Amino acid sequence: ELIWEQYTVTLQKDSKRGFGIAVSGGRDNPHFENGETSIVISDVLPGGPADGLLQENDRVVMVNGTPMEDVLHSFAVQQLRKSGKVAAIVVKRPRK
């Protein structure tokens, strides 16, 4: 059984690379294997702001206090874009 651990990460936006993450998932883009609608970190740019803080497959729980459960992919992207220079991101990942 999976035990999820929650992490809060504060990312500083890089002028060229943004937050250095890509997200997939969302209500309109469920996971191809299990139908899960979570917003998921799909890519972490090496050397970017999120490197060492976020991991691929982290589930995004909140962005700047806005819940990311059962939202559209575009909504999640929009929340990240409009967060200015700093984003507080809450993620969960299975305990190893």
Results as ranks from 00 to 15, higher is better:
D70Q: 08
E1A: 12
V71T: 05
H73P: 08
A87L: 13
K85N: 10
A87D: 00
L11Y: 00
S24P: 01
G25W: 01
S24L: 13
A76M: 05
S74A: 14
N57W: 15
K92V: 06
P67V: 11
G47E: 12
H73K: 13
R95W: 06
G20K: 00
K85T: 10
L53G: 03
S38L: 01
T10V: 05
K82F: 11
P30T: 06
R93V: 03
E56A: 10
R93E: 01
L53A: 08
V44H: 00
A22R: 10
G20S: 00
T37Q: 05
P49N: 03
K96Y: 11
L80D: 00
Q79S: 14
S74M: 13
K92F: 05
R95V: 10
E5P: 04
S15K: 09
F32T: 13
S15N: 09
K13F: 06
Q55D: 05
V44S: 02
V23K: 01
N57S: 09
E69T: 13
L11V: 11
D28C: 04
N57P: 02
M68C: 10
E36D: 15
S15V: 12
E5C: 07
K13A: 15
K85G: 13
H73Q: 15
G35Y: 05
A88G: 11
V61A: 12
R93M: 01
E33V: 11
G47N: 15
P67I: 08
H73G: 07
G48A: 05
Q6S: 12
V60N: 01
V9W: 05
F19T: 03
D70L: 04
S15R: 10
T10D: 12
I39M: 03
G26W: 01
G18V: 04
D58E: 05
A22M: 14
L45F: 15
K92G: 04
K85E: 11
N34W: 06
L2M: 15
V86F: 09
K13S: 10
D70P: 02
S24I: 04
A76I: 02
G65F: 04
R17W: 14
D14P: 03
I21Y: 01
V61N: 03
T10K: 08
F32A: 12
S83W: 04
K13V: 05
V44M: 04
G35V: 03
D43T: 13
Q78A: 13
V91H: 00
L11P: 00
G35K: 09
R93H: 03
K13G: 06
V71W: 00
M62W: 05
P94C: 12
E36P: 04
L11H: 00
Q79P: 04
A76E: 02
G20L: 01
P94I: 06
N57T: 06
I41A: 01
H73V: 10
R17E: 15
S74V: 11
Y7T: 13
G20M: 01
N29L: 08
I3L: 06
P30Y: 04
A76H: 01
G20E: 01
L54Q: 01
S42G: 14
V91L: 07
G25M: 02
S24Y: 04
G20Q: 00
A22N: 14
N29I: 15
Q79C: 14
T37K: 14
K82V: 08
P49T: 00
D70G: 10
D70H: 08
D43S: 10
N34L: 03
D58R: 03
P49R: 01
L72R: 09
G48F: 03
V60D: 02
P49H: 02
L53E: 06
L54R: 00
Y7E: 12
V61S: 07
V23W: 04
I39A: 01
W4D: 03
D14K: 05
P94K: 09
T66I: 12
L80W: 03
L2R: 05
I21C: 04
R59S: 03
D14C: 07
D58Q: 02
Q12G: 05
Y7I: 13
R93Y: 02
G35E: 09
D28L: 04
V63C: 06
G84D: 13
Q55C: 06
V40H: 04
R17T: 14
V71Q: 13
K13L: 11
F19C: 04
E36I: 04
Q78P: 01
V60Y: 01
V63P: 00
G18P: 02
E56T: 08
T10R: 11
H73N: 14
L72D: 13
K96P: 09
P49V: 05
H31N: 04
F75S: 07
V90F: 03
P46V: 07
V71H: 03
Q12E: 08
D58V: 01
Q12L: 08
A76P: 03
W4K: 04
H31Y: 06
G84T: 12
K85R: 14
F19M: 04
L80T: 01
V60M: 06
G25N: 02
R95S: 11
I3C: 08
N29T: 07
Q12K: 10
N57K: 14
T66Q: 13
S42Y: 04
S38T: 08
E56L: 12
M62R: 08
D70I: 00
F32C: 15
I39G: 02
F19Q: 01
E69I: 13
K96Q: 11
E56N: 06
Q79A: 14
E56K: 12
A22G: 12
I89T: 01
D70N: 13
A87M: 14
E5W: 04
G65M: 05
V90W: 05
S74W: 10
S83Q: 08
G35R: 08
H31I: 07
E5D: 08
R81M: 12
D14A: 10
G25Q: 02
L11K: 03
F32W: 05
T66S: 10
G26R: 00
M62V: 09
V71D: 03
K16H: 14
L2K: 07
S15M: 10
T10Y: 08
Q6E: 15
R95Q: 13
Q6C: 04
E1I: 13
K82Q: 13
L72F: 14
Q78L: 09
A88K: 14
N57L: 08
L54N: 00
Q78M: 07
I39V: 13
E69K: 15
A87R: 02
E69G: 14
E56S: 11
K96D: 06
R81I: 10
T10L: 06
S42N: 07
V9P: 01
T37F: 04
G52A: 06
V91R: 01
P30N: 04
N57C: 05
D58Y: 01
L72C: 09
I3S: 06
N57F: 10
I41T: 01
S15G: 04
G84K: 14
I3Y: 13
L11Q: 01
P46F: 06
E56F: 09
S42A: 07
H31G: 07
A50P: 01
I21V: 10
R17H: 15
G20Y: 00
R93C: 00
G47V: 03
G18D: 14
N34G: 10
K92Q: 13
E56G: 07
Q12P: 09
D51F: 09
V60F: 02
Q6V: 09
Q6A: 06
P67H: 08
L54H: 00
A22V: 13
G35A: 11
A22C: 12
G84L: 08
M62E: 09
D28F: 02
F19S: 01
K96I: 11
Q12M: 10
V71E: 11
K92T: 07
N64F: 00
G25D: 02
T66R: 11
Q79D: 04
P49A: 07
A22D: 10
K85Q: 13
S15Y: 12
F32R: 12
K92A: 08
V40G: 04
L72N: 15
T8Y: 15
R17I: 12
V90E: 12
G84N: 12
T10G: 09
V90H: 06
G25C: 02
F75D: 07
S15I: 07
R81P: 02
A87Q: 01
N64S: 03
R59D: 01
A87E: 02
K13P: 12
R17D: 10
P46D: 15
R95T: 08
S38V: 04
Y7F: 15
E5G: 07
V44R: 01
R93I: 02
R93L: 01
L53Y: 12
V23L: 14
E33Q: 15
